[in-house]
């Protein structure tokens, strides 16, 4: 069996999320990677993809239409390549979630999004009800189209391979959508929902002033900042910081909970994080029951130490 994996590149390098998609697809058989982009960026990205070990080949499709990964030409490209593949795979990122269902519909296939485990070539595990239930599904489609929940798969290595690069033609498509502009998040910090690392504070932060102690740590980690409901209710930070049942549901690679006791309402919003760190002076705090790493201590000492220890 052979899988085609769509890779995302940024500034000429392949994203880690795409390498997780490769790691997932490796369980399905041979892998061809697909790299798209404008003619002036594609070479660097293709070369970076070729260094990932385990790829049969890297396909490249260069076109100005791919500069912003618009769904219409991208889905058409995938459909044109599909006859050679049993599985079509991408990471569950904005691009994969946008284009793959469209391609699947054109192939008359029911897409399986957010795959967290591959049982066999036709059986997949994915979360439903915001992660409150996990379903195992068997697909009867001749071809499978999947997006991969990347936190469930350790990324394939970035280096060590030397796959051949082959260019493919982009099929013609109607010119009905056009990129106008883009804007990056203003704060310089990533958004909570998509951040890879989140530093979060609770009642233990004591005040709006106290909460600021998290800033340097978040800056150093390139992390988003979150908060528990108590911190929001106490006016330490605005409403949109809130993580939890009634706030945002997040699942970063690393969640650092500072002065958060870990009420179930908060846990409901972050329990799917890959690694949880808890810093709390109360060693009985429920947050320690879910934390992979815990430090019992005064966060006003520990947080600055942590920032320093990161170098």
């Amino acid at each position: 069996m052979t899988a085609l994996v769509l890779l995302d590149a940024e500034g000429g390098s392949i994203l880690q999320t795409s390498r997780s998609a490769i790691a997932a697809a490796a369980r399905l058989g041979e892998i061809d990677a697909l790299v798209i982009g404008s003619p002036d960026t594609i070479e660097a990205a293709a070369a970076d993809a070729a260094r990932i070990p385990g790829l049969r080949k890297v396909l490249t499709a260069a076109s100005d239409a791919f500069a912003h990964s618009l769904a219409e030409p991208l889905a058409a490209l995938i459909v044109s390549l599909a006859p050679s593949y049993d599985h079509i795979v991408a990471a569950s990122t904005a691009i994969g979630k946008n284009a793959l269902p469209r391609a699947a519909a054109l192939l008359d296939v029911q897409i399986i999004p957010d795959v967290m485990e591959i049982v066999d070539a036709e059986t997949f595990v994915r979360p439903i009800f915001a992660g409150n239930a996990i379903v195992t599904l068997r697909s009867s489609d001749a071809k499978k189209v999947l997006t991969i929940r990347t936190t469930n798969f350790d990324p394939a290595p970035a280096e060590g391979g030397s796959a051949p690069i082959e260019s493919v033609a982009a099929p013609a498509h109607a010119d009905t959508s056009r990129f106008v502009s883009e804007a990056h998040s203003e704060s310089g910090r990533p958004q909570l929902e998509t951040a890879r690392i989140i530093v979060s504070g609770g009642r233990g932060m004591q005040s709006a002033e106290g909460f600021k102690i998290l800033d340097p740590l978040a800056d150093k980690l390139g992390a988003a900042i979150g908060a528990s409901r108590v911190a929001v209710d106490s006016g330490f930070v605005p409403n949109d910081y809130q993580v939890g049942q009634t706030g945002k549901i997040v699942a970063p690679d690393l969640y650092i909970a500072c002065g958060i006791s870990g009420a179930i309402q908060h846990l409901a919003g972050m329990k799917d994080s890959k690694v949880i760190v808890a810093i709390n002076k109360d060693e009985d705090a429920p947050i320690f029951q879910v934390a992979d790493y815990g430090i019992v201590g005064d966060l006003f000492t520990v947080v600055p130490e942590l920032e320093k220890a990161l170098g």
């Binding site: 618009l70 904005a94 691009i95 990129f179 998509t194």
Partner: peptide, 9 residues
């Protein structure tokens, strides 16, 4: 989109 927003026509 991841890390910000984009505008399409």
């Amino acid at each position: 989109v991841d890390g910000g927003s984009e505008t399409l026509a």
